[in-house]
Structures are given as C-alpha cells and as structure tokens.
Design a protein around this nucleic acid. Sequence first.
DNA 1: TAGATTGTTAATCGATTAACAATC
DNA 2: TAGATTGTTAATCGATTAACAATC
Lengths: 216, 216
Amino acid sequence: MKRSKVSNNVIRRLPRYLRKLDELTEAGISRISSSDMGQQLGLTPSQIRQDLSCFGGFGQQGYGYSVPALREQIAAILGMDRGYRAILIGVGNIGHALIDNFCFSDWGVTLSAAFDVKSELIGSSLNGTAIYSMDELERYLEENPVDIAVLTVPKDAALPVTERLIAAGIDAIWNFTNIELTGPDSDVLVENIHFSDSLLSLSYYISERRDEQQTK
Amino acid sequence: MKRSKVSNNVIRRLPRYLRKLDELTEAGISRISSSDMGQQLGLTPSQIRQDLSCFGGFGQQGYGYSVPALREQIAAILGMDRGYRAILIGVGNIGHALIDNFCFSDWGVTLSAAFDVKSELIGSSLNGTAIYSMDELERYLEENPVDIAVLTVPKDAALPVTERLIAAGIDAIWNFTNIELTGPDSDVLVENIHFSDSLLSLSYYISERRDEQQTK
DNA sequence: TAGATTGTTAATCGATTAACAATC
DNA sequence: TAGATTGTTAATCGATTAACAATC
C-alpha cells in the first residue's frame, strides 16, 4: 500500500465509501461501478476512481468494483484491522453515551477502560468497560497498550488532562470537548468532534438559503 | 452582508474563529492581528484576511481586529442572532446527552421540544424540554415554528423519520445517525455528525504515521 | 510622522473533472 | 467479439498564498 501523502479530502471521503459499501452489502448488491456509486453519494465517477487509485487499482475494467473486496481494501487502508486500543476519559453524559451506544468494535477499535474523578463511578463498569480513577491513568498507560484517548471531560478539564496524556506519551486524541487542542506545540494527533461548529455551519446554510429566497 | 457563494471551506472555518475569539475574550484580549490569530489556529494570515473579506472589512489597518466586534460580526454571519428553533427526535442515549449537556442557546438556537416513542418518557421533561409522543410530531410542526430537526433516533428509524420530517416541510436536519441522508432527492439541508467517520479518519492518520516511522 | 496591518489583486498551488487508451 | 468500465494522463477549476498599495 503506497502512502505517498494522500490529501485530507480523500481521507475524509473513505469512511463514506465504506459506509455506502456496507449499505450495498446489506442490500445484497455485490458489484458497483464508479458512476453508480457516484450517483448515490453525489460525487463524480472520476473523483471516486481518482480517490481509489491513490491506494491501488481495486476495480476491473468493464465490470466495476466488487463490493466485498473493495470494502475490505478500504477497511485496511483506514487501519480497521490494526486492533487499535482506546481509553475514554470523562464518564459524563456524552462519555456515558459513547460507552453504551457507540460500537467501537464495529470500526476495529477496542475500548479497554474508562476513567473519571467521581468516586461513585470508580470501580463500577458500563457495558463491559471498567471505570478507573483518574489517579490511575498514568499507571494504566504504562502497563497497557493504548493508541487512542477519547476525551469527553468537561471544558475546564480538557487542557490539563490533555497535558497528562501527552506527558504519558499518548499518540492520538479523539476530542469531544469544545476546546481547540490543535496547537502548534505537540505532535499528538487530534481529531475533533465539535458539535457547535457543526450546528453553526448548519445555521449558516439555513441563513444563506433564507436570504436567497428573500431576494427572489 | 454579501452572500455571493462563499466556499464551504470558508464556512467551516468561521465557527473556529468564533471559538477562538471567545477564548481571547475570556483571556481579556480585546484586539488581535491576522498573523497572531493565524499562529494560534495554524492558518496563514492571508487566509484569515481572505476569509473575513468575503463578508466585509472588519479590521482596521495598522491595528488589527477588535475581538468583541469581530465576534459579533461572525456570530451574525453564522445566523446566531436569528433565533432558530429546533426539536430533537429520539431521546436515547445521545439525544439525552444533547438535551442535558449541549447548550443550544449558547449558539443562538432554542430547543423547544423532544419526541420519542417510549411511553415512559412521553409527558416528562428533561432539562426544561418537554418530551412528546412521535404521534404528535406532525401536529407540533404545524402549530409551532421549527427550523431544525435534531435526529438522534436508532439507525432503523432514520429514513422513515426523515421522510416524515420532509413531508412535514422541515428545512434542515442535524443528523447524528450513521445513515447517509444526503440523497439527491430532496432539498432539505443535512448536516452530519458521523462519529464513525471521524474515528476512522483518526485511525487512518495513526496508521499513516506508524507506517512512516516503520520506514525510517 | 513612522510603523503596523489591513483589504485586495495577482501568482501559485492543489484538487476536481474530463478524456481516452487499455482491457476485462 | 462488442460493450462497459477501469486507471491514468491532461485540462480545468478553485482555493490558498504572496505581495503590496492604501491607510489607520
């Protein structure tokens, strides 16, 4: 697999391809052409072929792509078969929801532990995930392989906890707090879920549309 | 305010600017130059000036930007002052977390009601938001102004509920389900929060980095 | 006034689309 | 074989960066 600096835009489309391929599998469809796929995703056939060709030729001329084969290829490109391990920090409302409802294993990730400061949570377990005290964080990271820290702590705890994680040598943070962690300082990977950014974008698009309708 | 087709990339950066400006306000900083701002966000000064100039000249030569003034301008561009109203559909884990913890009003949006099918929830209220039966959805939409539907239903309910929303004339959906709603069919605005897409992107970047380190 | 920094125009860079030979 | 569709190269389009006159 060549990894010669594939652009962000391409990477962000790969999970959508995967999701679409899963939908096709469920619908019993086992082959698809780039033009059908493009139609269903609102993309041009060229773009899909161009994207996939960053990683190799997965299709067959005159035929298209095998749905299950392409699905496996994309899963591998995304690292779903690498057995990454995650811990979750901050079992508040959103952390709780993730532990209970988000199926990490569907995406090849194992959630191995959770951490919180609230004594009534420590020692219990949720959906099979044990909850430890924040005091045990460093020791746990020393003794267990962890690739991803899921950050679901309150706003004020975001930066201090991030510093502890970085000091403990964590590689990647999945950030659900509304704090901008991406500083130029450390080289930890940060992937953000900013609810508010998303809602504000939607708010913009609604406003744009209404203004257009006004003008007409 | 001119709205002559501003590019997506620009729109997606505006909420980050807003967030940074709020941080600056909290830190007691009342003016900032495009180069300082760029440094703090990892963007070039040019890009920030270019982005802002899509909407007008908010700065002052030789001085920079007034933090509170720019903050208000961006808030207005994003539609935060338009009083949009939202309802939430599906009071499961994630819906519950949003009602309890996500401060809609911070972003100018009012959450006016929630809907679910579970009889034990119907009639109760969470954090001041009343929960209605799904049967009342259409009636509610007829009688109340609603701009945004927050979709937090289980996977299987996603498409049928979306169809009901569209039939009832809803304009915009904030989609938390893992289903691809963006079809070419309807012209409803859809903004997605796809947890899995985000996690898989992170998984890709981790894999990319590790492969690079291998090669070295 | 001199220094700083904007808004904007032009230059560069990168991403998307189109076209087409290769081939299943 | 003929039709379909890929992978890839070239053309186009758009976004980012650089430069600089305007001016606070």
